[in-house]
Simulated scan of single mutants.
Amino acid sequence: MKGLIRMKILFLCTDNFTRSVIAEFCAKSYLKQNNITDVYIASSGIRASSDISNYSNLHFQIMNEMGIDTSEFKRTQFSEDSFINYEYIIGMSDLHKDYVSEEYNKEIFLFNEIYNGRNTPVNIGAPDSDDFEDKMKELILYFYYAIPVIMNNLNKLRA
């Protein structure tokens, strides 16, 4: 972290391997491209110690091809400290929102809630589907183009 941090954002998903990671690295790429140094971005998962040995790495390949640096990837378990360390915790689905509510009696935002005002999940395609690669590219582009709006909307929330 460089200088003073104005805002800290944590993206939350289940395994901290796909959706929250894509959001994290798309956001970091956006910040770098726009020379924004006072926002800190991270991701975590409610089951970040789960077995992901059979999961696809396709999203890393696609992001790297897009020039998005994913070299700092590491899985992080969500914990109560997250409420102290992050101003905004943004989950990907009701599973994450419900987990935080039940385990910690706290509320978090959904990604789409901040992005477009909809209380809807960000879903991922099934890895065994014929169009999985296309769906993964769509998912990454969804996050990539949503991040500037997310940042703007979070700034409005703070005002």
Rank of each mutant, 00 (worst) to 15 (best):
V100T: 01
K74R: 14
S71K: 12
V100H: 04
Q61I: 12
Q77T: 03
V39F: 09
R75S: 14
A23G: 03
Q33D: 14
F25L: 02
Y88Q: 05
K32S: 09
N54A: 13
I62T: 06
F60E: 06
T18N: 15
E107A: 13
S93L: 04
F25A: 06
D38I: 11
S71M: 09
N57M: 13
Y104R: 06
D51T: 04
N16M: 11
T70W: 00
S56I: 06
I90M: 03
V21S: 10
D69N: 12
T76K: 15
G45I: 00
S82T: 02
A27G: 08
D81A: 11
Y55M: 06
I41A: 09
K106Q: 07
K28F: 01
N16I: 00
L95E: 14
E107K: 15
H96P: 09
S93Q: 03
Y30K: 00
I62M: 03
I36A: 05
N34P: 09
S20L: 02
I22Q: 01
R19S: 08
Y88R: 09
G91M: 09
I68Y: 02
L110D: 04
I46V: 11
L31V: 01
V21A: 02
E72A: 12
K32L: 11
Y40D: 07
S20R: 00
Q61G: 07
M63E: 10
F25I: 03
E80T: 10
T37G: 12
N16W: 08
H96D: 10
D94M: 15
S56Y: 03
L31K: 04
F17C: 07
M92W: 10
E87L: 04
K32A: 11
I41D: 01
K106N: 04
S49C: 13
